[in-house]
Simulated scan of single mutants.
Amino acid sequence: MGRRRADPKAETLRESRTLNPHPESVADERFTDSEFFDARDLVQVKYEMVRRVEVDGVSVTTAAAAFGFSRQSYYQAAAAVAESGPAAWFPPNRGPRVRANSPTRSSTISRNSWPPTPRCDRRR
């Protein structure tokens, strides 16, 4: 069997961790009738949901349902964009939270694991 060819946009969204896990739940007419709007793009979906309420005056309940979110998710998205702009919808970078050479990291290693404590209860 041949392997399905991957969609480059879906792969890019997956790598940036902005792929909507439930694009089928987006029922807004702009996403169903247009090729520009992509229900797989989580940032675009959230942006349009917040814009629909704040600019078009649609109720929170109606907008949240049309975009496949709960009202609580709408309020979290609106608060995040009010505080930090649309960049708040992008997930934070993965990776270590402290640098490898930081004092926190080295003191944790030395205090917890070095030098190894001898086990006196072992029999030879």
Rank of each mutant, 00 (worst) to 15 (best):
A27I: 02
T32Q: 15
R40G: 11
A6L: 11
V58S: 05
F36L: 14
F36G: 01
G85P: 13
C120G: 12
A87T: 13
P115Q: 01
S59G: 11
D121C: 01
D38W: 03
T104E: 13
N112M: 09
A27V: 01
R4E: 10
R124T: 07
F37P: 00
H22T: 11
K46R: 15
T108D: 08
D38E: 11
V50G: 09
N93G: 12
P103Q: 00
A79R: 14
S59T: 15
A65P: 00
S107T: 14
V50M: 05
I109Y: 14
R99Y: 04
F67M: 01
R52K: 10
A65E: 14
T12W: 07
T12L: 14
V55Q: 14
S25H: 05
L42W: 08
S25F: 03
A100Y: 14
N20G: 02
P92Q: 10
V55R: 15
L19M: 07
K9L: 15
A10E: 15
C120T: 12
A87G: 11
R14P: 03
T104A: 14
S70Q: 07
A6S: 12
P116H: 02
C120N: 09
Y75G: 01
G2C: 03
S113W: 11
S25N: 12
T61Q: 04
S107V: 10
D7N: 15
P115D: 02
R4I: 03
A66I: 01
R51A: 07
E83V: 04
A10N: 06
A82Y: 02
D28S: 10
V43A: 08
K9F: 10
F69C: 05
V53C: 00
E29L: 09
S73N: 12
L42C: 05
P96K: 04
Y75W: 13
T18L: 07
P103R: 06
A10H: 05
W89S: 04
K9E: 14
R119H: 00
